[in-house]
């Protein structure tokens, strides 16, 4: 267990939930819902950047030197070679998608009520943030399983 992993996962999941909230608010928007969605999207962007920094710092310090060699020597080396490698790059896309969603809500404001195209754009990108962020959580589970599998193979 590592506190940076806890921070990375918690900030990431709350960031994802923030954009789920934004998407739901925008399905049937009113002035107050748009105001709320703007705040929540801003908080979501901050959470996802915190997740990026925490996860990145852990990846560069502990993961590269300690976890990666263990996984690669274990029974599930693909959990690093395929899943971690994919995760570390797709993860970079999420804060930018979040910034786009926040910008859409801030930029259009109450015109989202009448502008269906802008509203659907904000819902689409927010939903994509949610899907990508939860996909990261799933990949994190696979990577943890790769590490645990390697340790179990050594101990048991």
């Amino acid at each position: 267990m590592h506190p940076l992993i806890g921070l990375h996962a918690t900030a990431g999941e709350f960031g994802a939930l923030a954009f789920l909230w934004v998407a739901v608010e925008l399905l049937n928007p009113t002035e107050s819902r748009i105001r709320r969605a703007t705040w929540i999207a801003g908080i979501g962007v901050i959470l996802l950047f915190i997740s990026w920094i925490a996860g990145g710092y852990y990846y560069l310090t502990d993961y590269q030197s300690i976890v990666k060699p263990v996984i690669k020597a274990g029974p599930l080396p693909w959990s690093h070679s395929v899943i971690t490698e994919t995760k570390e790059h797709i993860f970079l896309m999420i804060p930018f998608l979040a910034l786009v969603s926040w910008s859409l809500v801030r930029s259009y404001g109450t015109t989202l009520i009448a502008d269906r195209g802008a509203r659907m754009s904000a819902v689409l990108i927010s939903a994509l943030v949610v899907i990508f962020a939860f996909a990261m959580a799933g990949m994190g589970f696979i990577i943890s399983s790769g590490f645990r599998g390697a340790l179990e193979a050594t101990v048991l």
């Binding site: 490698e85 994919t86 790059h89 797709i90 896309m93 998608l97 786009v100 859409l104 502008d115 195209g117 802008a118 659907m120 754009s121 904000a122 689409l124 990108i125 994509l128 990508f132």
Partner: peptide
């Protein structure tokens, strides 16, 4: 605007699949 958003969403999904 929706075309831009769809292009972004497709870029992210296809880009992720390519990686």
């Amino acid at each position: 605007i929706l075309s831009y958003a769809v292009a972004l969403a497709l870029s992210a999904v296809i880009g992720g699949a390519v990686i």
